[in-house]
């Protein structure tokens, strides 16, 4: 019968390095516009990240009043009660790199970071 070592050997170290390097470069192997794992929120002169992996509702401050960022099954949308035309509500949900929700009156930007397919979008 085969014997198995229970103490780490140098080959294990080599495998560790290989796997660690692969893990580190894996984001670069993703295609542009891939589904992201978080969004960046810009509001009130600050920017912060919100993970897309857990569902939840968070308040986002705005000059017209708080909006609500809803994360649901891996995508984000904005519920913006104080905003008159509610354009931003129609812009969601977003999940892929480069997708963005902009609320002009309430000055909120929600964006999925990552490599984008295009340099700019005309709309």
């Amino acid at each position: 019968m085969m014997e198995v070592k229970t103490r780490p050997r140098i080959t294990d170290g080599a495998l560790l390095v290989l796997l660690a390097v692969f893990t580190a470069v894996s984001p670069r192997l993703l295609p542009a516009g891939a589904v992201g794992d978080r969004v960046l929120v810009q509001a009130g002169g600050k920017e912060w990240g919100v993970p897309l992996l857990e569902d939840g509702r968070r308040e986002v401050p705005g000059p017209l009043g708080p909006a609500v960022l809803v994360v649901e099954s891996g995508s984000a949308r904005l519920q913006n009660a104080p905003c008159p035309l509610k354009i931003c509500e129609r812009m969601g949900p977003i999940r892929r790199a480069g997708e963005v929700i902009v609320c002009l009156p309430n000055r909120i930007v929600v964006k999925v970071p990552g490599r984008e397919v295009v340099d700019a979008v005309t709309r």
Partner: peptide
């Protein structure tokens, strides 16, 4: 189930955890 290469965005996170 997801039909998008985007799940691979989780790889850095899950790969480190797997190690």
């Amino acid at each position: 189930y997801v039909r998008s290469a985007g799940l691979m965005a989780l790889l850095p996170f899950m790969g480190a955890a797997a190690i």
